[in-house]
């Protein structure tokens, strides 16, 4: 028997860590979703404009900066020294994933604006934004010459955004359940899946819908494989990693992980999407809603389990 009594009474540290609350998983989800929208946008462009419809290239591209700003607001709410927020941009620390993240977030905004200025994005501003149109015409004149390059930059910076949201957690050897480099690709693929699911809810054309569903089945299958690899990696890892798996294998996060993340967030929508692809009648909106909820649940389970263990 071993009994440990610690006199560390600091709030949010003891009896267990609760430094990152809902703001962080909510941001990680939105960051992943926006990463997914950016990568899809790039793929759509590289494949030419044969895909009619405005789900990814127009509405998805408009929502991307809006959702990212909401995510960054959550990040800001999490800071305990808010007036120092500008300090993220007076340094670049290559060893710090959060520093990478801060700069990536700054980089993706202009990329998103360039993508919006491409054909299929925003052609003209209406309403009270008409004064922007002369400037917009000039931006469009430049971007039209670099469509392929912008597509690639969109894919690269979107992937960077998606991967970093996982690496942010995985570098912390102090929190064994996070300590797996699988978390980078896992959060990216989950973000790609969330991006496709979100685009499916933006009234895609039939052709676009079919392509999104096909891609999303691949993303969900990929996410499932990465989750299995994560579990295997931890089972065969050092003692602390093996023990931390208890959290999702009998411990307090077992039901949310296997029920919400894997069952309702991956397996159910995967089954529904395969039904849809095999032309069985399936309401189109159920799978994407569960994919989005599952992606959010994945971040909540990981962020909280890491702090509990």
């Amino acid at each position: 028997m071993t009994e440990i009594v610690s006199g560390n009474v600091n709030p949010h540290i003891s009896p267990h860590m609760e430094i990152w609350e809902w703001q962080i998983p909510a941001y990680l989800f939105l960051g992943g979703l926006v990463a997914g929208l950016m990568v899809l946008n790039g793929i759509w462009r590289l494949q030419g404009k044969q895909l009619e419809g405005q789900s990814v290239l127009r509405l998805g591209a408009i929502f991307a900066p809006v959702l990212l700003s909401l995510g960054m607001l959550f990040l800001f709410l999490d800071l305990t020294y808010k007036v120092h927020v500008f300090r993220f941009y007076t340094a670049f620390k290559p060893a710090s994933p959060m520093s990478w993240g801060a700069w990536i977030l700054l980089l993706v905004y202009p990329v998103q604006i360039l993508a919006l200025a491409l054909p299929g994005g925003i052609d003209r501003f209406g309403w009270k934004l008409e004064f922007l149109n002369p400037l917009w015409e000039r931006i469009k004149g430049i971007t039209a010459k670099f469509e392929k390059q912008i597509a690639w930059i969109s894919i690269a910076s979107g992937s960077g955004l998606g991967i970093y949201t996982g690496i942010l957690l995985s570098v912390n050897a102090a929190r064994p359940i996070w300590n797996s480099s699988i978390l980078g690709p896992l959060f990216l693929v989950s973000g790609l899946s969330a991006g496709a699911a979100f685009a499916l809810l933006l009234n895609p054309s039939n052709k676009e819908e079919r392509k999104l569903v096909r891609l999303d089945t691949a993303f969900l299958a990929g996410e499932l494989i990465l989750l299995i690899l994560f579990v295997i990696g931890h089972l065969s890892g050092v003692q602390a990693n093996r023990e931390s798996l208890e959290l999702i294998m009998g411990g307090g996060f077992t039901a949310p992980f296997w029920g919400f993340v894997v069952g309702l967030g991956i397996l159910l929508p995967l089954w529904l999407e395969v039904r849809e692809l095999t032309h069985k009648p399936t309401p189109f909106w159920i799978a994407p809603v569960f994919v989005l909820a599952g992606g959010l649940a994945l971040r909540f389970v990981f962020v909280f389990a890491g702090q509990a263990g």
Binding site: I19, D78, M98, L169, V171, A173, A174, Q307
Partner: peptide, 26 residues
């Protein structure tokens, strides 16, 4: 403390739980 934003990355990283957020924010 002039550079600290209160992001708590250091607290997540410390295996000894030696850090806390001072009520002043850092």
């Amino acid at each position: 403390t002039k550079l600290c934003t209160g992001c708590k990355a250091c607290m997540a990283a410390c295996p000894y739980d030696a850090r806390f957020v001072n009520p002043k924010g850092y």
